[in-house]
């Protein structure tokens, strides 16, 4: 089945080289060295990401076309909004809503990795309770928390926060030519997080939706990094709260509301309560 879909993706992209990197329920993600408008690349670095939503054979064709178009467009719009807000996330290069294709830059760069992989690597490379692990981990977890807060302060919710939907990359300022970044240096002190996959993202000003967003992340951390999840969760939330508080009095009022909702959501789970 996957081969067929990959064939379709090739057909819609004039047979450029595509390398499958992930396959979810809704979409396939490829990397490619080819830019849709610029001339052929000098290198073969996988600089671009293609997200392809294949047609679902179980759906009525009219419904399927409508959904693919709507979802691809809304994701592209959200990413564009993030670009305007200067929140690190993929930049849209090209959208083909009819065929469900979204062309983005490879925002994490060649030396980026998912937070999930990064945490696993650090847990392997450093001793538990070591000062090194704590300093690197804490700094980045605080940054991730702050990034999510930035998103929420702009009334955007991600909808599917997990450690595999957050990438981590060397800071762009530090990545200038004079200081070569060693590839895959997980202990690089100048890392920054990037959010990806806004397929379930939406605009929302409700504290409830933001609380659910954080709760989903907490649950994901618990299941993917069970050993130190409590510490990680504390750091993430600290970073989140600090970012709100930087906004002065207004921020403090908003964070209170979100935290109150978060307590509620934690008690009942993501689901509506059925006690009564």
């Amino acid at each position: 089945m996957a081969e067929n879909i990959i064939k379709q993706a090739h057909a819609y992209t004039a047979n450029i080289p595509l390398a499958l990197i992930s396959q979810g329920a809704e979409a396939l993600v490829f990397t490619s060295p080819v830019h849709p408008y610029l001339p052929s690349p000098p290198t073969c670095a996988p600089d671009y990401i293609l997200k392809y939503r294949p047609p679902k054979p179980y759906r009525h064709p009219v419904l399927d076309a409508q959904l693919t178009k709507h979802r691809t467009l809304s994701e592209a719009r959200l990413l564009h909004k993030l670009a305007l807000l200067d929140i690190p996330a993929p930049r849209v290069i090209h959208v083909n809503p009819k065929h469900g294709l979204l062309w983005m830059n490879n925002v994490a760069g060649p030396h980026g990795f998912s937070v999930k992989q990064w945490v696993w690597d650090i847990e392997l490379a450093t001793a538990p309770n070591s000062a090194l692990r704590e300093s690197v981990m804490k700094a980045n977890m605080l940054q991730i928390g702050a990034l999510i807060a930035k998103l929420h302060l702009n009334d955007i919710v991600h909808g599917d926060l997990t450690t595999s939907n957050i990438m981590i990359r060397p800071k762009m300022a530090a990545a200038d030519a004079s200081v070569p970044v060693p590839p895959h240096n997980i202990l690089n002190p100048n890392l920054e997080p990037v959010l990806i996959d806004f397929g379930l993202g939406s605009h929302s000003a409700l504290a409830e939706d933001k609380a659910v967003d954080i709760y989903v992340l907490e649950r994901a951390v618990e299941s993917t990094h069970p050993v130190n999840s409590e510490t990680y969760k504390t750091w993430l939330l600290d970073g989140y709260v600090q970012e709100y508080e930087r906004g002065g009095k207004g921020g403090k009022i908003r964070i209170k509301e979100v935290l109150r909702k978060l307590d509620e959501v934690r008690q009942r789970g993501r689901k509506r309560s059925m006690v009564g």
Partner: peptide, 10 residues
């Protein structure tokens, strides 16, 4: 039927 079942399958 087509609409709500597509939602369920999804």
């Amino acid at each position: 039927q087509e609409t709500i079942f597509a939602m369920l399958v999804e």
